[in-house]
Design a binder for these strands. Structure first.
Lengths: 237, 237
DNA sequence: TCAAAAGTGTTCCTCATACACCCATGC
DNA sequence: GCATGGGTGTATGAGGAACACTTTTGA
């Protein structure tokens, strides 16, 4: 018994020594033509002192997985999302950012289509989409609001080189695309200038189809030109 | 004895579990008007299997220090450099990037003036300035060449918003500044266009002094306008 | 015929680029 | 007087910003 206690004490010492851990936090932005507002994926935090607040989708990195792999796994395990194009944004390492000890967190971010990433209602982590503008320093756990801010800033800065069209249906109108840009940038854009710029980027092509059953002149539908996801990956490296 | 061995075995198990660590690697770029070439700060690596290769200035992050603080401390301890403006670049976390176990490394980068950051010859870590272009995948330890590449890419991309003038003497000529830009970008620039662009940036001001004792028309000397270091810090956030 | 969104062109300004010659000094 | 780098202006084209009216459809 005494021996066991000694062992435990020693173990605890070691644990203290190594009480720093690495985690990944994923900032997933969601959008859908019908929603208007940009959404962000959150979990319900049940860790003291943050009970009832929102947290990002995060977990510890395992010893046998790369950071990028960890991000994919965590997103699958906690939110049920597969095959998402994640990018590293920044690393957060303040001493006291986590109440349980030293946790250094690498932030990743991605863009998804709400209609394709429905949340399973029985998920024990209670993931949910929250309107981006409703998330505040006050209702987010840990330093996750700061991470959210860094991610939206990254997204806004790189909006022209990120595959944001993946947040839209396969075929979409230019107005839908413009609404998406406006949701991300949180500012109105000029229609004519927007069209000129997008068409010059040479990433989408028009189809021969038009909207149907709309109470106004039907809009032409557009499609992606190539594999923009792959392009984006290559462009970033 | 048996007991002790058991304890050690248990400790080792725990150590294995927690054998992931966090480090910071600093990529310090150095320049001096007389050198022409951009330099990078390296240490002599003596860890197998990288003996004789160059490494970046890095070390483990302590449990009680923030990442930014760790970068400052490590740079001071290993290279003797104080008060350097460091910026986080990217985090590297491949499973097998370090032979001794799982080490996740946060890369930081900074710009310094060679003449102000002389290396103490008795330094046990053997820091040295290496011409940037001489560093290769082949002569750098770990994944440090990859980190170096990410850092120079970051520097080139942000050259207009980073306080690169801090790599020059207090008073400098526009030609000296142009040479610095050319060293960083590794490409020649047009003299007239360069001057127009820099002067429009409104970050330097002319003095009433001129070069002396040069065998050609003496150049006007310029100075920084404000605290560009502070400006840069605010601009990044 | 009305409401609602689609679609379209021009002007102005700023900025990037390309490019060549005279100027002041030390030797 | 000559070698050396300092210093300057202009023309052209691309891209961003501002701005208003006509078209097509369903109801």
């Amino acid at each position: 018994m005494i021996i066991d206690e000694n062992i435990n004490t020693d173990l605890r010492k070691i644990e203290d020594q190594f009480k720093s851990a690495i985690s990944v936090d994923c900032v997933i932005f969601g959008y859908d033509e019908d929603y208007v507002d940009l959404q962000a994926l959150t979990l319900d935090c049940n860790m003291s002192p943050y009970e009832g607040q929102f947290s990002l989708v995060g977990d510890l990195v395992q010893p046998n997985e790369n950071l990028d792999e960890a991000a994919q796994r965590i997103l699958l395990e906690r939110a049920g999302f597969n095959d998402v194009f994640l990018e590293q944004v920044k690393t957060f390492g303040s001493i006291d950012r986590h109440p349980k000890g030293r946790v250094i967190s690498v932030a990743y971010s991605a863009l998804v289509k709400l209609s394709e990433f429905k949340i399973a209602s029985e998920n024990p982590h209670h993931p949910s989409w929250q309107p981006f503008n409703h998330l505040t320093e006050g209702n987010m756990a840990f330093d996750h609001f700061e991470i959210l801010q860094a991610s939206i800033q990254y997204l806004r800065k790189h909006i022209l080189t990120l595959p944001v069209e993946y947040m839209l249906p396969n075929k979409f109108t230019l107005s839908q695309l413009q609404s998406l840009y406006e949701a991300i940038l949180n500012e109105p854009l000029d229609k004519r200038n927007f069209r000129k710029k997008i068409l010059k980027l040479d990433i989408i092509k028009e189809t021969k189809e038009y909207q149907k059953n709309v109470a106004h002149r039907p809009a032409k539908l557009y499609q992606l030109k190539r594999n923009r996801k792959k392009d984006a990956k290559e462009a970033i490296s």
